[in-house]
Design a binder for these strands. Structure first.
Lengths: 162, 162
DNA sequence: ATTTTGTCGAGTAAACTGATAGGATATAAA
DNA sequence: TTTATATCCTATCAGTTTACTCGACAAAAT
């Protein structure tokens, strides 16, 4: 039931870009994003290209370039992102709504495993489809503020850098 | 978020053995189990050996041999089976209860992704850990009875077999 | 002894995962 | 216009996992 590192990094990056935007820094460089979460730079680069190709991000090249969110954060559903990067949320193909695949069993209608896995897929999908990037970013910011710690992309932190 | 075929086949087989037992046939052969769900015989064979090594099944060799459930069905939790075959239920390591792994991010306590994925992991675990093989078998049998169709391992069906 | 079944170890092709390397291209500042 | 700084693009890659298969062997029943 595992999420790939690729998708994990992609989600982390979307969240980071969202938080940074809220803190007044809409644009970040690959190297900054990689450093924040200790991600391999070149791998992240490929992931960013992919996120851009899906329309979530846009970029600017050259000096002072970087990546930024293209869409409003409340239009980006986490479930949608994961499906685009990973494929189905469902544990087995015969309970997937978006990537249905017939299974090998002779009688889907009477399959106990299918019923159980349908519950699982619905539980997953309900959470992931209900939450948008906006909400995750808000939760993250709330946590930082509650504990009175500075986020790595806060404006003050930026100037203090190097 | 996918379950491997290996685990899927394992669960199907446990359910099949459970249903068959309730219908008066505690012991089934590999070939019968494979045929029922159209599974590759040799692959299933390896899976059965693994399930036996985990203590779920026992077997008898030679003529009239086959596999049968070793434990009472209500002691077999689906979540436990999947963890033994697949590893963690959690989407990412830092929210796994049984296979925790630190992630690359600098601050777990303030990670929005982690919160979200913790919800997902709990949703999955709650379903899978609450359900035992006994329940899944019962649900399966109920479906067959409701629709008045014979299960492949029903006693009459067995005799009708070539 | 023969047939029927499970046991076990090895092998394998293809896909996926998690990266890395290096050059091309665009942009902004000096 | 040059130079420094970014992203973009192609390609490669080792290691693991997945979903199987093969074949010799061991035990049990007739």
């Amino acid at each position: 039931m595992r999420l790939s590192k690729r998708s994990e990094y992609a989600l982390r990056t979307l969240i980071n870009l969202g938080v940074a935007r809220e803190l007044g820094r809409p644009l970040l460089q690959i190297s900054e994003l990689a450093e924040k979460d200790n991600l391999p730079v070149k791998f992240l680069e490929a992931i960013l290209v992919e996120l851009k190709s899906h329309g979530y991000l846009d970029s600017r090249r050259g000096k002072y370039g970087g990546y930024f969110l293209k869409q409003p954060m409340d239009t980006i559903r986490i479930g949608t992102v994961i499906r685009e990067l990973e494929g189905p949320l469902a544990p087995i193909g015969c309970v997937s709504q978006n990537f249905y695949e017939r299974c090998s069993c002779p009688d889907e209608a009477h399959c106990g495993l299918r019923m159980l896995m349908l519950d699982v897929r619905n539980a997953i999908a309900n959470i992931l489809d209900q939450h948008t990037l906006a909400e995750v970013v808000e939760v993250t910011l709330r946590k930082y503020r509650r504990d009175k710690v500075a986020h790595p992309f806060a404006a003050e932190t930026r100037k203090a850098k190097k």
